[in-house]
């Protein structure tokens, strides 16, 4: 019951957070340029431009515009996304599954690989494995995503032909309209309908973008995991466990790992939120039709409704992910009290 109360309390806290975010982002879209620019083209006459101002209230004070916009947000009318040719709420729902699928696969890869490498480095501290991992981590955080994406694409698509250039599935599935739409996540939907060939195909398509996206996160998770693991391994209860004669594998993977996961969980949570909103370059290079590609196009085309909707959604996701992370703390460390 305490957990439920805590979650409800945190959800109520969403309101001031979202209000703050919306005021900041709305103001930024207004001071960074004329919001009418996205609706005006070079062929329009002055009277047509005046119509645009009137229709979208651009000729009114900023606070009045904000009230109009906020009223729409409350009534689930988030405006029209010119970039997607859809209402913003529909556009968010439309693009979210593709990004979520890519993010989930990336974060799963990052968790498994990062934790394994982090623990391995801590256990083999200052050995070859640790040094190698350090180099890999350094490369991971240093490499520009677009460069890595292009190199992976060149080598594994163009040169060796092992993976596709991009997209979520092969053309044949689109031509035969045999991609189920249950959750919007092709990997899950294909399993739900028992289409294993499609599952395999979707998995084949997601490898390169997921590797690209997860590379930086793997590096961060590895470093955090290594540090916290080293700290935990020096604690008394580990010494006690060793003194009791427990085998080293059990000490590391059962007793130390769980406690070392606490700071790592925070990083993973934040990375998850970041990946959801920051896959712009990866999605563009691998033609992945998700939120990142859409938001980048929206910014390019001055589609402020879409930009605002995107920012608001990412803010909601961040808050929710943080909530999940806090709840997980309680699971990982019973000493943490949710109040």
């Amino acid at each position: 019951m305490r957990l439920a109360n805590y979650i409800i309390k945190r959800l109520f806290l969403l309101i001031p957070v979202l209000l703050g975010v919306s005021i900041i982002v709305f103001t930024l879209t207004r001071i960074s340029g004329n919001p009418a620019a996205g609706y005006i083209n070079e062929k329009m006459t002055p009277s047509q431009i005046a119509q645009v101002y009137e229709k979208y209230h651009f000729d009114e004070p900023v606070y009045t515009q904000f009230i109009y916009w906020l009223d729409g947000i409350i009534h689930l009318d988030w405006g029209w996304s010119k970039t997607a040719a859809l209402p913003v709420t529909d556009a968010l729902a439309y693009y979210f599954p593709a990004t979520l699928e890519l993010t989930l696969v990336s974060i799963i890869m990052a968790i498994f690989i990062g934790i394994y490498l982090g623990i391995g480095s801590a256990v083999r501290r200052n050995k070859l494995f640790d040094h190698s991992t350090r180099v890999i981590s350094l490369i991971g955080v240093s490499l520009p995503v677009f460069w890595l994406a292009l190199i992976l694409q060149f080598v594994f698509y163009y040169y060796y032909g092992l993976f596709p250039s991009g997209g979520r599935a092969s053309n044949i599935y689109y031509l035969t309209q045999s991609i189920p739409d249950i959750t919007g996540l092709i990997l899950i939907d294909s399993l739900l309908v028992g289409n294993f060939a499609l599952f395999k195909d979707a998995l084949w398509h997601i490898v390169l973008p997921a590797v690209t996206l997860s590379f930086g996160t793997i590096a961060i998770v590895t470093r955090i995991m290594r540090n916290s693991m080293l700290e935990v391994l020096s604690l008394d209860y580990i010494k006690t466990a060793r003194a009791k004669g427990l085998n080293e594998r059990s000490i590391i993977w059962k007793h130390a790992r769980k406690n070392a996961m606490i700071p790592t969980t925070t990083v993973i949570g934040l990375s998850f939120g970041g990946l959801l909103g920051g896959a712009v370059l990866t999605e563009s290079i691998f033609s992945w039709p998700g939120l990142g590609k859409w938001s980048a196009n929206s910014i390019r085309l001055f589609d402020y409704n879409s930009v605002l909707g995107f920012c608001l959604m990412i803010a909601i996701i961040y808050v929710l992910v943080n909530l999940v992370v806090d709840v997980m703390y309680a699971y990982l460390d019973p000493r943490v009290r949710l109040e």
């Binding site: 292009l150 694409q153 060149f154 698509y157 163009y158 032909g161 596709p164 250039s165 991009g166 997209g167 053309n171 689109y174 031509l175 563009s284 290079i285 691998f286 033609s287 039709p289 590609k293 980048a296």
Partner: peptide, 22 residues
Amino acid sequence: ENVIIKQVADGTTRILMLKNGE
């Protein structure tokens, strides 16, 4: 029979697709 008009944002990717024959 079929026409697919695919949006590929990155110019380099498009060129690789053409050279590859995809």
